[in-house]
């Protein structure tokens, strides 16, 4: 049980570093660019962690992310929980443990997240953001397998074994 707690605390530590990259470092390099590290962590949760632990992590993680956005309270958790459940369903049809699949899922859900957010506010707000959107999607695609690997590696380090 202690190992599970250590594992979860480590995951939140990684999430904080991811937020530092998402909200401070990457915008300092190119202001309109947004890269999503959390989608990769969600895929990692689905592959390596049971639903009963992965789901609360996604809820708490997305609530933390909410603190760094001006979006209506609850909107970001709503979208990430949808992504989590969608991938949970998809795992019955596709092989998730493939890095290319993870990258493609990262790109797909990055766009889905942006489109859903624009749909709930206004599509015109995305005008003129084609290049940062494309770059953000590609980087999210590249980072997703890395985040999955980190989650898997952590699980191995803490010697957690699930059925």
């Amino acid at each position: 049980m202690l190992k599970v707690w250590k594992f979860q605390i480590s995951l939140f530590g990684i999430l904080f570093v991811a937020i530092l990259m998402e909200a401070t470092v990457i915008p300092a390099v190119w202001a309109p660019l947004r890269v999503d590290f959390f989608i990769g962590m969600i895929i990692g949760q689905i592959i390596f962690v049971p639903f009963s632990q992965g789901f609360p992590f996604v809820i708490l993680g997305s609530l933390i992310l909410q603190a760094f956005s001006g979006a209506r309270l609850g909107l970001i958790p709503l979208l990430y929980i949808f992504i989590f459940l969608a991938i949970e369903v998809l795992k019955n049809f596709i092989y998730l443990e493939n890095a290319y699949t993870q990258a493609l899922l990262g790109i797909f859900f990055y766009f889905l997240f942006v489109v859903a957010m624009a749909f709930l506010s206004d599509f015109s707000y995305l005008k003129g953001t084609t290049s940062p959107l494309a770059a953000g999607a590609v980087l999210t695609g590249c980072l997703s397998p890395m985040m999955v690997y980190i989650v898997g590696r952590l699980q191995t380090v803490y010697e957690l074994e699930y059925e």
């Binding site: 530092l20 603190a67 309270l73 958790p77």
Partner: peptide, 29 residues
């Protein structure tokens, strides 16, 4: 539980993120 949480959050309205301890997340960050 998640659905109830989202409904509560969405019903609290925009920019009330100082409540529910979210400001303490920013403080920690």
């Amino acid at each position: 539980g998640a659905a109830a949480l989202i409904l509560v959050l969405l019903s609290t309205g925009q920019y009330s993120s100082s409540s529910l301890g979210i400001s303490s997340i920013r403080e920690g960050y």
